[in-house]
């Protein structure tokens, strides 16, 4: 456990050293959701309902997106690509933990600092969009528990997806297109810009076969109280299935990658 704590401290110190850099990424992550909030504010000036949503449920949905985008989304792929390409991955190989765990602990520490930026942002959003207005949202502990547990699984799942893209650099010199493809599919089918139930049925069906729906959309729906216990359990099970699948894939591909990996010089 001590070694993981050491990795955690290293990453935390690194994040603190580049806190402005982190702030830029933070702004980048909250931007689209904030834009949509202003848009819905104008839409609801003329009407009370959009699909199954009233103004407050949409605001909560986008606040969840802001929360989850900052705490769930990880990006180890770009750094991995550079490290594999330049041979810097050597630094990690003799360490007393495997690369997947080290990168995972690094990401947790990174999120820790982002959380500090997140709290005031959520408070400001609450004051701007919700404070002083009456809304009939019922807060329930089981929903919150589901949301937090599901978000933790989402964090692991998304980390593995990105890690998988990163380690494909053992074979591909350039992975920017893969990263771009993944982001594109995620934006379409992950409910990042709009809740998925405002999409046409055909697109919702496609989204059901992909892991992205389970990363943001379903945790958000759970928090909004739109899932019953059965649906929550099913959602968690499917999330668990994707997690297991990607874990096995990452392990296998990483081991194969290491076998073909070569670096020259000291």
């Amino acid at each position: 456990m001590g070694k993981y704590l050491a990795f955690f401290k290293i990453s935390l110190k690194k994040s603190l050293a580049y806190r402005l850099r982190l702030l830029v990424w933070f702004l980048w992550e909250i931007g689209p959701a904030l834009i949509m909030l202003f848009f819905w504010l104008a839409v609801f000036a003329n009407q009370d309902q959009v699909g199954n949503y009233n103004f407050y449920s949409l605001v909560i949905y986008y606040l969840v997106i802001i929360f989850a985008r900052n705490l769930v989304l990880t990006h180890p792929d770009i750094a991995l690509q550079k490290e594999i390409y330049n041979g810097e991955i050597n630094i990690y190989l003799p360490r007393p933990a495997d690369l997947i765990t080290i990168k995972f602990v690094y990401e947790i520490a990174y999120k820790f600092l982002k959380f500090l930026y997140l709290i005031p942002t959520l408070i400001i959003c609450y004051l701007v969009f919700l404070s002083g207005r009456h809304f009939d949202y019922q807060f329930l502990w089981p929903n919150l528990t589901f949301f937090l547990f599901s978000c933790s699984l989402s964090f692991c799942l998304y980390f593995l997806i990105k890690f998988l893209i990163g380690i494909l650099s053992f074979w591909l010199t350039e992975i920017e297109w893969l990263d771009s493809l993944e982001m594109l599919i995620f934006w379409f089918f992950g409910g990042l810009l709009l809740p998925l139930d405002l999409f046409p049925k055909s697109m919702q069906n496609i989204a059901g076969f992909l892991p992205f729906k389970y990363i943001f959309y379903l945790p958000a729906q759970g928090l909004l109280g739109r899932l019953n216990q059965q649906q929550m359990l099913t959602s968690l099970l499917i999330q668990g299935f994707w997690l297991l699948l990607f874990f096995i894939l990452v392990k296998k591909i990483y081991q194969r990658g290491l076998k073909i990996y070569s670096v020259f010089g000291g």
């Binding site: 580049y18 830029v24 909250i30 931007g31």
Partner: peptide, 16 residues
């Protein structure tokens, strides 16, 4: 100083 993502500061603004 060293903020390698400084060019991204303007992106959320542009998206707005």
């Amino acid at each position: 100083g060293n903020i390698d993502n400084i060019h991204e500061v303007f992106q959320p603004v542009l998206r707005l």
